[in-house]
Amino acid sequence: MTGTVEAKLATLGITLPAASAPAANYVPFVISGNLLWISGQIAMADGKLMTGKLAGEADIEAGRAAARQCGINLIAQIKAALGDLDRVQRVVKLVGFVNSAPDFTDQPKVINGASDLFVEVFGDAGRHARSAVGAAALPFDVRVEVEAVIAFA
């Protein structure tokens, strides 16, 4: 039977990808008590990296789309870790990194792509604390990377 969160994903037209394997010497997630710590998920959809440095107003939407995809990839990791997305009690925190040119200052607008997704999918439980940080470079030249802390039952 499909749970409430999975039904919401279907309503939004979102199909979760398989949770990605680590690209280096780390694990995709750690469970400690009732907290799930998810390693940074990069902007990748259908096996293709969403790459490039963000600079100027024209890139904000491309960045938001990349952040949203990171959010989808995070949800795939939540499902892999917990088995049932309805176990999520609260999205505690997101930390987003934006591959930014030195004069780019709209990192919060970019990371809204992930934040908005979590509220769409989890409702009030998706509202979270957050950091949005500019980075000189990200792995594989991706536009965005986002990590998360999730409270679960």
Rank of each mutant, 00 (worst) to 15 (best):
I14C: 05
V133Y: 04
N99S: 07
G123C: 11
A65C: 05
V121G: 09
V133M: 12
L54C: 07
K79N: 11
F97C: 10
G83F: 13
L82T: 01
Q107Y: 10
N99D: 04
T11R: 02
V110L: 02
P139D: 05
I14Q: 03
D106V: 01
E120C: 08
L12Q: 12
R127W: 06
K48H: 13
D86Y: 09
F122N: 03
H128M: 15
V5F: 10
P108D: 01
C70Y: 02
R127H: 11
S115G: 08
F29Q: 01
A21W: 01
T11E: 06
G113R: 12
A137K: 14
G126T: 11
K8G: 11
G3C: 05
F118V: 14
G40K: 06
K93P: 09
E120L: 07
G56M: 03
A43L: 10
N99A: 09
P28H: 07
G83A: 12
V149N: 01
L54D: 05
G63M: 13
T51R: 14
V95R: 02
A24T: 14
P17A: 02
R127C: 12
F118R: 02
L138P: 12
S100N: 09
V146Y: 01
D59A: 14
I38T: 04
V30Y: 04
G126Q: 10
F118D: 04
T2W: 06
V146M: 02
F97H: 15
A125Y: 00
F118K: 02
L16E: 13
A136E: 10
A153M: 00
I111E: 04
G13P: 12
G126C: 13
A125C: 00
P22D: 14
M50H: 04
I31A: 11
A18M: 03
V121Y: 07
N112P: 05
A43D: 09
A58F: 10
G71W: 07
T15W: 01
A125P: 00
M1F: 12
A101I: 10
F152M: 11
A132Q: 04
I31Y: 06
L54A: 08
I14P: 04
F97Q: 15
V133H: 05
T11P: 00
P22K: 15
K53A: 08
V92D: 01
Q77K: 09
S32G: 11
S39T: 15
N99G: 05
Q41T: 08
G71T: 09
A66F: 03
V146K: 00
A55Y: 12
S131W: 04
S100K: 10
A148C: 13
L12M: 14
V91D: 02
G3Y: 04
A43W: 07
G33N: 10
F140I: 05
D124F: 13
A135I: 04
G123R: 12
F140T: 09
F122T: 05
F118N: 04
A19W: 06
S115D: 03
N112C: 13
S115R: 09
M50Y: 03
P17F: 09
G113P: 10
L82K: 05
S100R: 12
G63W: 13
